[in-house]
Nucleic acid binder design. Structure first.
Ligand code: MN
Ligand code: MN
Ligand code: ZN
Ligand code: ZN
Lengths: 139, 139
DNA sequence: TTCTACATTATAATAGTTCTAAACTGTTGA
DNA sequence: TCAACAGTTTAGAACTATTATAATGTAGAA
């Protein structure tokens, strides 16, 4: 929830040139209090709804990957069909609604810390993520 | 760890015809005490190493999906590049070694039950899976 | 304003996966 | 036993998400 000059500052300080395409993508991704999940195709639709200037698909891919590498987006592995991204970069887990094909955050306060009583020698843990698959309860 | 006539019986009782291709794929997948993880490409290589008869790629895909639908294989979402499958169909979690790009089972006994203190109304939980990403510890 | 490194773009290429439709084969039951 | 049928295999085409290419454009420094 920043204004354009703040996006410009953030991009610049990340070593990314604040081009008009990147600023527009920032607006679409971050100009909201609610975080959300998206696929590249959904993002392209959101962008074209909110501007008349066309941004090429390649630029959307490049920008999303740049933002992911800078830590402004997370990639969530759900299935092999398509990449899901998350504007919520804090540590949290997910419900995946297989009926609606919808990804829903689980507040970290609602999950007891996951305790794993084994390690792999020489490896350090980067992340621990829980995916809870749900479906319609017709009972 | 069954013999061919047992695979034939299992296939037949699953409503799948025990063709020679399916029996060969059963051998490659299940003729071992250790379970393992694989991509379709890796499976195709294993098959061609263990037989002179060629099995077409389409048949491998069809068979893997049939086995997955029957519950003889699980699909593990790791990234969007490729599907990973698991011959271990019991409930368990995974380490994913990002350096080696290797998937490793975590024994269910080594993970405290994951407690999620929230639900989605009208939805029932199908699975709860933990993915622990690890990398080389150079410290 | 000019220069340059970086960014954008359209398009082609790639890779994983699914579809198609013709040929083939395991099974059934006459 | 064996013809008939339904299910299976197959090669290849099609499809879709993603990445690479390379020419053009432009933001920002000087
Ligand atoms: Mn899939
Ligand atoms: Mn990826
Ligand atoms: Zn999320
Ligand atoms: Zn496993």
């Amino acid at each position: 929830m920043l204004n354009n000059s703040q996006y410009i500052e953030k991009l610049r300080s990340s070593g990314l040139r604040p081009t008009k395409q990147r600023i527009k993508i920032c607006e679409v991704l971050f100009n909201t209090h609610k975080t959300f999940h998206f696929t590249i195709n959904e993002l392209v639709k959101r962008i074209s709804k909110s501007t008349n200037d066309k941004i090429s698909l390649a630029t959307v891919y490049n920008t999303v990957h740049a933002f992911k590498n800078k830590g402004y987006l997370k990639e969530i592995p759900i299935n092999s069909d398509q990449s899901y991204f998350d504007t919520n970069t804090s540590h949290h887990h997910h419900f995946y609604d297989e009926t609606q094909k919808d990804l829903i955050d689980i507040d970290d306060a609602d999950v007891e810390p996951v305790k794993i009583n084994t390690r792999i020698p020489g490896k350090k843990i980067k992340s621990v993520e829980v995916l809870v698959k749900v479906e319609d309860d017709k009972s």
